[in-house]
Design a binder for these strands. Structure first.
Length: 628
DNA sequence: AGCACGCCGACT
DNA sequence: GTCGGCGTGCTC
């Protein structure tokens, strides 16, 4: 017997090993296998008969049985193909950490002999009832997206009503903890995220179909956990970028959840305060049912026009007045700042200099006094005057947390003011920062500081300069600003206020938040995306070529040439990174973009023997962050 | 990914 | 004369 084993390595093909006599193995099971001398953890992706004498034997077992059904393994193949990740890296990233690896030798063999594969739902080998599965697909409903007020309560009610087991996936461990607590009042819960000990986590993996807990809660890493037929799959806060954590596979949990639900006939439910444009678009096409609740109480949202005044003063009179009144009422204030951007704007009319082709902000390099488009690579000369109004004051934006804190301190000397940055607070020295922020009257922070506040807990949220965010050279800039503002508004009491200072006071993202109108925002946003061929209408990928200095341009040119001929692809000119070593090439395509990239780059990634090095080619499909 | 092999610069 | 930098190639 031969086992084909895939490893966590950027190698497309599996490696073949001899299965020692008497071992019981199944695809989807982790094993130890010698690779370049040392035993490494891999996953069995296929078993076959054949001449095995020349092959090295497997060294041991990691799991007593397969952790993936054949349908889960097929789903992993799909994920790998979509994200251009190797199958081994995909699978091993989406399995719970090994409880305890078994070494080679008699004990391993004995362990293998007595091991029995757990019964996995949907597994071809263990699945007793394909008819039942088909019936499930038949009654597998269109996925739902819960938006609007009391989403959590509505999801909870749905989970409680259906009487079916469910896998609940959250964006982070904190949220997983909250959901586990809530669900414990409904039925037994197991947790699949990293907050529980490895052994417990491993036991939870197969518990849902076999031992009858009602709910399993986890993060994306629990996505392939076995589920019984008819189970529900819930993805909380589908728009959260944390659903696409760093590392492999580079794919958003939303996309995997939709695919899994369709394949396994599961009922899928998503929630979002502000859905991703991807999800809203599916709603418009009827692929997802958008379940909106009637608008709930909403704070008064005011957009304060800062054209011509914001450079000198962080707080406009309306915002300063609102802070004073909120503090007098004994309520809390949150001032939202965003990280400094590299865009250039007109101080007089508020216009942001954008690429005429791509409609994203041109990146301003103060050192070279140059402007460049990070999508198409076009360089532009620095204009002397604003192309919009002829004004002479073109300046980079800039209201960082520190400057804002200082400005508030000057005006409100007696208030307790704290800056909060979750990254800084995570360190040992930052422990006091969180407590200070929780006790403060005024908190200054960016998106991450929202976690300090519960729903309707603030008297005032003030967005000092959303223009910085709106001006980021990223086609998702409006979506992100909209999401942040909406999330802030949800944390303000209905009798409180939201004040947005902007040089673009009529921007559709700001107006949509003021009117509590999701549809208004996505209507405009999707029109913009469609006109310029951005996701979700078309797909994007970033090909990065990292080559020795002299070869970088040649390697990038080779990539452009290799992809240029493919039908349906738009390939942009390579742009150098800051260190002028790597070259980035943006590629637009259709639904089959991953396959087109794989086919187009195949020859470059596997150069013929003796050919000059082509450098390291990295492909990121459907990037969330613009890495410029 | 890791890890070994291979060919060019500053040291005991 | 070596030690070591990373660029290159391979792993059943």
């Amino acid at each position: 017997m031969i086992a084909d084993v895939a490893f966590d390595a950027p190698v497309d093909h599996p490696f073949s090993y001899r299965v020692p006599e008497g071992w019981v193995l199944a695809p989807g099971q982790r094993v130890l296998a010698p690779l370049r001398g040392a035993p490494r953890v891999g996953v069995v992706v296929a078993l076959r008969e054949g001449p095995a004498e020349a092959l090295k034997p497997l060294a041991g077992l990691v799991d007593a049985g397969p952790l993936l059904s054949s349908s889960a393994l097929d789903l992993a193949r799909w994920i790998a193909a979509e994200s251009l990740t190797s199958l081994g890296s995909t699978v091993l990233a989406l399995l719970p950490p090994p409880a305890a690896a078994r070494g080679s030798g008699p004990s391993a063999t004995a362990g293998a002999r007595i091991s029995r594969a757990p019964e996995l739902a949907g597994g071809r080998a263990t699945d007793p009832a394909p008819e039942a599965e088909r019936a499930d697909v038949a009654h597998g409903a269109t996925p739902s997206l819960l938006v609007g007020p009391s989403r959590d309560a509505r999801l909870l009610a749905l989970l409680a009503q259906t009487d079916q087991p469910a896998l609940i996936l959250t964006a982070d461990v904190e949220s997983a903890g909250r959901w586990a607590q809530r669900l414990e009042r409904v039925g037994p819960v197991v947790r699949l995220d990293s907050s529980v000990a490895d052994a417990e986590r491993a036991a939870a993996w197969t518990a849902l179909p076999t031992r009858g807990p009602r709910f399993a809660v986890g993060t994306r890493s629990a996505m392939l956990a076995p589920l019984p037929p008819g189970a529900m799959l819930a993805l909380v806060d589908e728009q959260d970028p944390a659903h696409r954590p760093p590392g492999h596979p580079r794919m958003h949990a939303r996309e995997v959840a939709l695919e899994r639900a369709a394949r396994d006939g599961l009922r899928a439910v998503f929630t979002a305060a502000t859905p991703s444009a991807e999800m809203w678009w599916r709603g418009e096409r009827g692929d997802v049912r958008v379940a909106a609740a009637p608008p709930g109480p909403w704070p008064a949202v005011t957009v304060a026009d800062t054209r011509g005044i914001a450079r000198r003063e962080a707080l406009t009179p309306p915002l300063a007045r609102a802070i004073r009144e909120t503090l007098a009422a004994g309520r809390r204030v949150f001032l939202i700042v965003s990280r400094l951007s590299s865009a250039l704007g007109c101080d007089e009319c508020g216009m942001i200099l954008k690429c005429p082709e791509c409609a994203i902000a041109l990146a301003y390099s103060p050192a070279g006094r140059t402007l460049g488009c990070r999508l198409c690579g076009t360089a532009a000369a620095l204009p002397g005057t604003c192309p919009g109004c002829g004004g002479r004051r073109l300046m980079p934006f800039g209201w960082g947390a520190e400057r804002v804190e200082h400005a508030v301190r000057r005006r409100f000397a007696r208030a307790r003011i704290a800056r909060y940055d979750p990254d800084a607070a995570a360190g040992r020295r930052g422990q006091g920062q969180r407590e200070a922020a929780l006790a403060a009257d005024v908190v200054v922070g960016s998106r991450g500081a929202l976690r300090l506040f519960g729903p309707a807990s603030l008297g005032l949220a003030g967005f000092v300069s959303p223009d910085q965010m709106l001006g980021l050279p990223d086609f998702r800039a409006a979506e992100r600003t909209f999401a942040l503002l909406w999330a802030a508004a949800e944390r303000v009491r209905p009798d409180g206020a939201v004040i947005v200072q902007s040089q673009n006071p009529t921007h559709y993202a700001l107006e949509a938040v003021a009117r509590q109108d999701l549809a208004a925002f996505y209507g405009t946003e999707l029109k913009f995306r469609a006109e310029l061929g951005y996701p979700p209408i078309r797909r994007l990928a970033i090909v990065t070529v990292d080559a020795p200095l002299a070869a970088a341009d040649r390697a990038a040119t080779a990539v452009v040439a290799a992809l240029g001929g493919a039908p349906g692809l738009t390939v942009y000119a390579p742009t150098p990174d800051r260190r002028n070593r790597a070259r980035r090439i943006v590629v637009k395509g259709g639904p089959d973009l991953p396959r087109a990239l794989r086919d187009g780059l195949r020859d470059l990634r596997a150069p013929p023997r003796g050919a000059p090095g082509r450098g390291i080619i990295d492909v990121e499909v459907d990037p969330l962050e613009w890495p410029f």
